[in-house]
Amino acid sequence: MSAACLDIRSLSAVLPNGQRVLRSVSLSVQPGEVRALVGESGAGKTMIGKAVLGVLPTSVRVVDGDMLLEGEDLGALQPKARRNLIGARTALIPQDPLTALNPSRRIGPQMTDRLVRILGWSGERADSRIRQLLDEVQIRDPERVLKSYPHELSGGMRQRVLIAAAFAAEPRLIVADEPTTALDVTVQKQILRLIAQLQRDHGTAILFVTHDLGVVAKISQKVSVLYAGKVVEEADTAELFAAPRHPYTRALIAATPRYTDPYASLKPVDETVLAGLAAEIAAADQSWRPGHG
């Protein structure tokens, strides 16, 4: 009965022109676990996150595969029931804290609103809950923050607010979509530490989308490496860094810049690796038929 928190089984999605953006992606996130999803821009990391949360762009069509949220098959549910399930059990920590808060509403109502209107909490309960969460993300002057408009807060503050909001309803799964990419390097570290802290305290499973292997090493227990919409390697994080099996993973790890020798360590992915990947993907596409796999 230990159902995975999230179980994606051979998920495939295509664009209107027939181009595949997800190639039979399978991955699972166990309760309380952090699963990193790494890959370069355009590899489909964000797409997987959006698919799980039910907000794929209308142009992207899921043609194959299943997604199970705590054992419930999202594809088998009516749209309304699916929305309710996703709304109650998941949350998003978005990439860009500048656009993720409604600019014309104050932070307080914006945070409590979802608890009250969607989950039916009382106003006082929602209010004390978000104060507690603001404290957990180390916001020292909650009064001011709750009364502020988003533009009156710094990027780091806004991301803290968004993290607090994501954890407020005690979701089982949080999709964190490059939550530190839009922030200053110094702020990135604090935010990452906060997410890790809250994740441990609340026991929430996280699907952590990132392109930064350094972040992967710090926060996740499991990793899936994505290339062109295909999972090329999946492993325990420690194992992946100790002994990467796929040549692409090896190349990615090798390409991570090091302080000791920044220029020499900054290597592009080798051509033969890319050629191998292209062949691998072509072979996968050859054998793939929608509905079989």
């Binding site: 949360l53 039910g54 907000v55 929305r83 309710n84 996703i86 709304g87 109650a88 998941t90 949350a91 998003l92 978005p94 990439q95 860009d96 656009t99 993720a100 808060l101 409604n102 979802r114 209107r117 969607i118």
Partner: peptide, 13 residues
């Protein structure tokens, strides 16, 4: 197109 609209979708509005 803003993320806050997407977040509202996810929350179930």
């Amino acid at each position: 197109r803003m993320d806050y609209v997407e977040s509202a979708r996810i929350a179930g509005y």
